[in-house]
């Protein structure tokens, strides 16, 4: 299947169409909304399900050196990507050092929703992937924040005295998403197939439907964000929001090939390296770099890169992963 066929198939999947519905409703100023508590519940469900399924997969196949190597590669990528993003931003935009570093931090970290959507595409297509990619996702959340703060310190911007205190590190490493993802992964490893058999009806069957509802909400959020910040993102920044995920995906692909991951694993590593955080990193940036403009990094990550990855990026990464690994 070529890239165009994959893209067309992806575009007419229910998940993407619900995302587009949310986006369209927000642009049309509809009062459609998903209550805050429901959206929170949906994200908890998705994290629990994806973490648990990953753990069960590792339990079935056992822990090998690939897990350690992939986590190390993910952490190195997360440290490295902000440096590339920062250099690109300094060339492609007029952002200040602090704003550019804050945006760069988002692109070194990951979007767990993009990861969930990509893994559901793989599952639907019947392409296997390493279950431990969930743990890699969790490991890639935080390092980028440190790289961004180093970039600011090097340029003499901001104030380093309160940038990274122990409270902030605790909040980053123990944020609810990471705790649930890693916790569900560990429970999946411990309970294995027997555990899955007991909660399969909750974890597997409703997954795609709940993902659709969550992506409807994400579409609404992205659309409203773009509407409220209309004119804030210059063409150079919007271009960055597309170029950076493609650059990250290329590096992710190289790292995954070096480790020898499967087709699904290569694709997920590309997705992790291509995606931008909009949950953990924005909160960390508000504490550590309050001078940075949140409208810039949130709109770019959520309004440009997230839709790009979801609609076009995922089929592109899958087609490339199939091409380079020879997988189907």
């Amino acid at each position: 299947m070529n890239i165009l066929e994959l893209a067309a198939q992806n575009l007419i999947s229910p998940a993407i169409l619900f995302f587009v519905l949310g986006l369209s409703a927000a642009f049309a100023r509809s009062d459609l909304s998903v209550p805050e508590a429901v959206a929170k519940g949906l994200s908890l469900y998705l994290l629990l399900a994806i973490g648990f399924k990953g753990g069960v997969s590792v339990s079935a196949h056992g822990v090998d050196a690939g897990l350690i190597l992939t986590i190390i590669a993910g952490v190195v990528l997360s440290f490295l990507l902000p440096l590339i993003a920062f250099a690109l931003l300094r060339v492609m935009s007029t952002l200040s050092v602090i704003d550019a570093a804050a945006v760069a931090a988002h692109y070194g970290s990951i979007s767990i929703v993009t990861f969930v959507a990509a893994s559901s595409v793989l599952t639907t297509a019947g392409i296997a992937f390493e279950g431990y990619m969930v743990a890699v996702a969790a490991a890639m959340e935080a390092p980028a924040i440190l790289s961004a703060l180093w970039l600011v310190a090097r340029a003499g911007g901001g104030r380093s005295d309160e940038a990274v205190d122990s409270g902030l590190m605790r909040e980053i490493l123990l944020n609810g998403s990471i705790v649930l993802l890693v916790g569900a992964f560990a429970i999946g490893v411990i309970t294995g197939e027997q555990g899955m058999a007991k909660i399969e009806a909750f974890i597997v069957a409703p997954f795609l439907g709940i993902l659709c509802l969550f992506l409807l909400d994400m579409g609404l959020v992205a659309g409203r964000g773009l509407r409220q910040t209309r004119g804030l993102l210059r063409p150079g920044l919007i271009l960055f929001g597309v170029v950076m995920p493609l650059s990250g995906a290329t590096l992710g692909m190289a790292a995954a090939l070096l480790i020898g991951l499967s087709t699904g694993g290569v694709m997920l590593m590309m997705v992790l390296a291509a995606s931008a955080s909009y949950i953990a990193v924005p909160a960390a940036m508000r504490v550590a770099l309050p001078e940075a403009n949140p409208a810039v990094y949130l709109t770019l990550a959520l309004g440009v890169t997230f839709p790009f990855n979801l609609v076009l990026g995922i089929p592109i990464y899958l087609a490339l992963a199939q091409t380079v690994t020879g997988g189907s």
Binding site: E36, P282, A283, N293
Partner: peptide, 15 residues
Amino acid sequence: RSGRWSREGQVTRAA
């Protein structure tokens, strides 16, 4: 000064 914002649909506590 940072513009208009609403709690509705915020995906992160940061905003």
